[in-house]
């Protein structure tokens, strides 16, 4: 209860600011229309108009809510205009990319921890890879893969993986190095091999670090997928909805897609968090 009041207060404040901003940003169009019709608007009429335009610069909250209702609940999930349909397209590529990125990240971390050469050479490249703007290379990857006949889910998953492997590498390297000198010495007293030490000590010890990075990685994977859906030609997925909305000035559609993407991201992070809690509790490592 004590949390609900402040959270609600913030939400109400945001909605109020949003309504006020909608008035400010859509007023110009309303006045222009009125001038063309050679009438003038009173303040009340202006406000009502700015909150109910067809193509507002900034749609009012209830318009976005209506847009979400129309495209989520009031429509068959298989329809091309359903956000559930587009959300599923985006989600499937996100999960594929997240899976690829996680496996690649773990593999690189294992290499980095066990090989001095990889430790020195891989990390700088991994960091460099993240400094390249994803917006710049996403279209190239899509075009190149398209030209060799690969389209659909895979190119998007690759871009998604490109963004999500990095937090996994960083977290896993730290996690695999988490065992302290005493624990490693203990393994040495039993003449344990590297692989025995890995499976019995390093890997279990890394779990809290892995899950912390997975939460970042899954959000990054979603961003990657959406960016991959932006290049012209894409017709399916939340990213495509964002882009086509902006082509045709359908701001309500843009905002609906944005909210759908945000809700999807939040849901994914929450799910990873729940799995984390379950696993760490079972391993006796919950904080």
């Amino acid at each position: 209860m004590t949390k609900v009041v402040p959270v609600l207060t913030v939400i109400v404040a945001l909605v109020l600011i949003w309504y006020a901003a909608a008035v400010g940003m859509n007023a110009q169009w309303a006045r222009d229309q009125a001038a063309r019709a050679e009438t003038t608007l009173g303040f009340g009429e202006l406000v009502v108009d700015t909150w109910s335009q067809d193509r507002p610069v900034l749609p009012a909250p209830h318009q976005v809510a209506q847009g979400l209702y129309d495209s989520v609940l009031a429509i068959k999930p298989t329809s091309k205009r359903s956000l559930v349909y587009h959300g599923w397209i985006t989600l499937s590529a996100t999960l594929a990319g997240f899976g690829i990125g996680t496996l690649a990240g773990i593999a690189l971390a294992v290499g980095i921890v066990h090989s001095r050469a990889m430790d020195m050479s891989v990390m700088p490249w991994a960091i460099a890879s993240q400094t390249i703007p994803i917006l710049a290379i996403a279209p190239m990857i899509i075009v190149v893969l398209n030209s060799i006949g690969i389209s659909g889910l895979l190119p998007k998953a690759i871009i998604s993986a490109y963004l999500s492997f990095f937090p996994v590498v960083v977290g896993m390297v730290k996690g695999l190095r988490a065992p302290d000198a005493m624990q490693l010495d203990q393994m040495r007293t039993w003449s344990a091999t590297n692989s025995q030490t890995f499976w019995r000590l390093r890997l279990p010890s890394s779990m809290p670090y892995l899950f912390a990075s997975l939460k970042v990685a899954i959000a990054a994977a979603l961003v990657g997928t959406i960016v991959a859906e932006l290049p012209a030609g894409a017709t399916r997925g939340l990213g495509a909805r964002l882009l086509s909305g902006s082509y045709y000035g359908q701001t309500v559609q843009i905002w609906s897609a944005l909210f759908a993407a945000a809700a999807l991201a939040a849901a994914l992070v929450v799910i990873v968090g729940l799995i984390e809690r379950g696993v760490l509790k079972r391993m006796g490592m919950a904080q």
Partner: peptide
């Protein structure tokens, strides 16, 4: 060692088995 260094994800029996598995 000074610290028991038992693995929290293993039972007491599982911890004692650890060197036995390795060997």
């Amino acid at each position: 060692f000074q610290a028991a260094g038992l693995y929290p994800w293993r039972t007491i029996a599982g911890n004692i088995k650890l060197p036995l598995e390795i060997m």
